[in-house]
Computed example of a mutant assay.
Amino acid sequence: MFVGVRQMTLQDAGNELSFPALVMYPTQQVPVSQGFGPYVMEVSLDAPIAPGQYPLVLVSHGSGGSHLLYRSITCHLARHGYIVAMIEHPGNNRVDNRLMGTVDNLQYRPRHLKLTTDYLYQDARFAPYLLPGNVAVIGHSMGGYAALALAGGNPWFPPEVFKPDYQGPAPSLVDVEHDARIKALVLLAPATVWFKPKAALSGVHVPILMLSAEHDPYTPAWHNDIVLEGVPDPARVDSRCVSNAGHFSFLSPFPLKIKQGGALPTTDPEGFDREQFHEQLKQEILAYLNLKLKTS
């Protein structure tokens, strides 16, 4: 199977916002090299979807990130029987980060994942090929927050309230949209502080694969502890720490020209092989989703 790609712009009419989405899917059409910004992928633009029905996987990037940063994972999933939708979160991406740290961002992120799901299940090009109500979310960093919120988590704001020396206003519950179609989560170095209050994750009943990084100053191990201590059944969480990895090690390997620039997202702890790790990571995620989505 090969990888087909369709680019689209989705609308959040209620908030007068739009956001780009890149959808990957199985196709029988032979791919060619296609550029997407600075990245090149072997895909077929607007190719016919291969016959069959497939689970849907949503991908939520980290704060200030991009929907193109998980290519090694998403191409692998599409090649092996998934329709994968990657959106770029408005106001919290690489070119427009004005909503970082706001309540709006906490509300918009899960809302836009749900709008994407609604759109694809209603779109004549994709709906016939989607398994009904069989959706997973992969979330990295702030994307992990979005995944948990969409799957039933109830976040609180502001997060600073949980610091011992906090003297500001009392926290308030953030009104977020949930989606019962979510059947599994993959959390990569998730940001979870908004779920620290007791019972904030009591509505999350789906199985979770959760990976943390050994050297992560942004979402250290206690973020994972919030999930393990907050969900109703921690036995449904498969959690492990990736040895010697950093927070950005979950991003797909960058082209050499970008790596030579030395930007923080391209760097890893000394001795960590990101290329080798992503060969293993994409297979681990595929095996997990096959188990949770295709055998349920």
Rank of each mutant, 00 (worst) to 15 (best):
A149H: 10
T27F: 01
P169H: 11
R6E: 10
Y218E: 07
P255L: 02
S66M: 09
T267L: 15
H178W: 04
A235E: 14
K183F: 02
T266E: 04
Q122T: 03
L211Q: 12
L120E: 01
L286F: 13
A146L: 00
P234S: 11
L22H: 06
Q7Y: 02
Q276V: 06
M24P: 00
L201P: 07
G64E: 07
P26S: 07
R111I: 00
L185S: 08
L58S: 02
M41T: 09
M100L: 13
S243M: 14
H205K: 12
V3N: 11
F2M: 03
L56Q: 01
R109T: 11
G152N: 07
P51L: 05
A124S: 13
F277V: 06
P190D: 09
Q11I: 05
N97G: 08
Y129P: 01
D118R: 12
A78E: 07
P31T: 03
V59W: 08
G152S: 07
A149T: 07
K294D: 12
F250M: 05
L69R: 11
G81W: 04
D46P: 06
E160S: 15
M8H: 00
F19Y: 15
G81D: 04
G52W: 09
G230D: 12
I138Q: 09
N97W: 04
L22V: 11
H215Q: 13
N244T: 02
L201W: 09
P48T: 10
E160F: 06
P255Q: 08
E177K: 13
I73Q: 12
P190W: 07
P220G: 09
G4N: 06
L185H: 10
H61Y: 06
E42D: 15
G246M: 01
V57R: 10
N15H: 13
W194H: 14
D238E: 14
K294Q: 13
P220V: 06
A21T: 08
K114E: 04
D123W: 02
T219N: 14
F36E: 08
S18G: 10
H61N: 05
Y70A: 05
A151W: 08
V237L: 07
A127K: 15
G139V: 02
T266V: 04
G261L: 14
M142K: 00
V227T: 06
F195M: 07
P255E: 03
Q122H: 11
G230C: 09
H89F: 02
V40L: 10
L77P: 01
V227N: 10
G144Q: 08
Q34N: 14
P51F: 02
L10W: 06
A127F: 04
G262Q: 03
G101V: 03
F126A: 02
Q7A: 10
F162H: 13
H178I: 01
G35T: 08
H112W: 14
D216V: 09
G261A: 13
D123P: 01
S239Y: 15
L120R: 03
E284W: 09
L256G: 03
M142R: 03
N105Q: 15
K163F: 08
L77E: 05
M41R: 15
L45Q: 12
L201Y: 12
R6S: 13
Y25Q: 02
K198N: 04
P232M: 11
G133Y: 05
S44A: 15
N93S: 15
